Computed example of a mutant assay.
Amino acid sequence: MNEENVSFGYEDIAPEEKTSRVGGVFSNVASSYDLMNDAMSGGMHRLWKDRFVRRVKPRASEAILDMAGGTGDIAFRLAKSGAAITVADINAEMLQVGMERAEKRKIAGLVWAQENAEELGFADNSFDAYTIAFGIRNVTHIQKALEEAHRVLKRGGRFFCLEFSTTLWPGFAEAYDLYSHKLVPKIGQALAKDEDSYRYLIESIRRFPDMPTFKAMIEDAGFVQCKVEPMLGGLVAIHSGYRI
């Protein structure tokens, strides 16, 4: 791959093109977000998100940034603690879905912000915790996003990332690979009339760094005490670290 190129699924493209094309994908899937996650996880994403938020341990006195959280799935769970939650996403359509869902659920007090994970508009040392769930693999320059997460966290701040990875369970890995590549795009076409977006989302998982590599990237961004908690053999993993 050309050093100046980045991955978009199985394609290698210019960075500015990825930002635009990923934006198009999420504009397309915003209205079918739950369906997308159900298709990609067999409905298990709800349990994974519950577990993720338990690991974050949000507290009422805290300020938490939920990045790439436009539709509110993580923020709604975090908000139950009474913490001050800022929901940030680069995609306006995803944020709109989240705001509408919050209104329907009568969840008030969330701050909604359109932000690029690579160039956050928040001051240094602004947040006690930074969360990102199923979003960082879609960032154009992942290392920049990790460095920005480190910058906006206070000393002692916590970084938590929930992301698909590569399962190491023999047999299950092959079965999920078949399901995801062959069936998920067809499900997207049948139910959301959008096969291409679902195909990209599956391919983006395959191009994402494996667990040890991503852990090293988090450490390179300045985080310490970094850990990886794999689920289903690593099909999905919770990555965490601290800023000191």
Rank of each mutant, 00 (worst) to 15 (best):
T213A: 14
G121M: 04
E115C: 06
V22G: 06
R155S: 14
L235Y: 11
S240N: 05
T71A: 00
A129T: 06
Y179F: 11
G121S: 08
E100K: 11
F159H: 03
M44R: 14
A14P: 09
A113G: 04
A75I: 05
F160P: 00
A173N: 15
G109P: 05
A92S: 12
L65E: 02
G109E: 07
S165F: 03
K193V: 08
R55Q: 12
L232G: 01
L47V: 04
Y179P: 05
R55D: 13
E62Q: 15
K57P: 05
G23V: 08
E119K: 14
A102G: 01
I136V: 15
G188H: 13
A79R: 14
E203A: 08
R21T: 07
F8P: 09
V22W: 04
M99V: 02
R105D: 07
E119A: 13
M1I: 09
G109N: 10
L232H: 05
G69I: 00
A108V: 09
L162V: 04
H45D: 01
E195Q: 15
F172P: 05
G135K: 00
G156P: 07
A102W: 02
A237D: 05
N125F: 12
G157S: 08
A173F: 09
G121A: 02
E4K: 15
S7Q: 11
V224H: 14
D34T: 07
E4Q: 14
V152F: 02
T19P: 07
V97N: 01
C226N: 02
E229A: 12
S27N: 15
W48T: 00
R55T: 11
S32A: 12
E4F: 08
I187G: 01
V152Q: 01
F76L: 05
K18W: 02
V139Q: 08
I218Y: 06
L183Y: 14
H45L: 00
V184H: 10
G188V: 07
S7L: 13
Y198S: 00
S126V: 05
K227M: 11
W48F: 10
I142P: 04
R101K: 15
K186V: 08
I132D: 02
G70Y: 00
M99Q: 15
N116R: 13
E174W: 13
I187D: 01
G9T: 08
V111H: 13
D124L: 09
F208A: 10
A129L: 09
L201A: 06
I136A: 08
A92H: 13
D34Y: 11
D194R: 08
L162F: 03
E174P: 04
G82P: 07
M40S: 11
Y179W: 10
A117L: 04
G241C: 05
N138W: 07
K57I: 06
S41P: 13
M40N: 12
G241M: 09
A30L: 08
V97M: 08
L201P: 05
F159I: 06
R46L: 03
Y176E: 13
V87M: 03
L95C: 02
E115T: 09
K154T: 12
R105E: 12
R155N: 14
M1E: 12
T166I: 14
G9S: 06
F208Q: 04
K80Y: 08
Y198E: 01
R46W: 02
A108K: 13
D196M: 12
V224I: 15
D124P: 11
G222N: 10
L235V: 12
L191A: 11
S197D: 04
G171V: 06
E103Y: 10
R206K: 15
E16S: 11
W169V: 15
K144R: 15
D66F: 02
F127D: 06
